[in-house]
């Protein structure tokens, strides 16, 4: 039996591979990221936090916080 395809996750220059099945929100929590501070795109499309990740999905996390020195 072949190993189930993983989900590739990219945030800027960091990369991870995770098991499919978790939701976008669970993925952020798994990586220790605040769901308020990141958007999740799956295979190039923005998805809501309850979207379940499928084998072979390519996830790009988009950091939304920006700002200069205050």
């Amino acid at each position: 039996m072949s190993e189930q395809e993983k989900v590739k996750v990219v945030l800027r220059r960091q990369e991870w591979e995770v098991e499919p099945g978790m939701t976008a929100k669970q993925l952020l929590q798994h990586l220790g990221l605040n769901p308020q501070s990141y958007l999740v795109t799956v295979n190039g499309e923005l998805v809501s936090e309850d979207t379940r990740l499928q084998p072979g999905d390519f996830v790009r996390l988009v950091a939304v916080i920006s700002g200069g020195r205050g």
Binding site: N34, Q36, S37, I65, S66, G68, G70
Partner: peptide, 18 residues
């Protein structure tokens, strides 16, 4: 911008928002 106060405050407020 690394270490900027604004970013720190935004992260704090997002913890509250969560």
């Amino acid at each position: 911008s690394e270490g900027a106060n604004t970013i720190y405050y935004k992260e704090l407020l997002n913890k509250l928002e969560a």
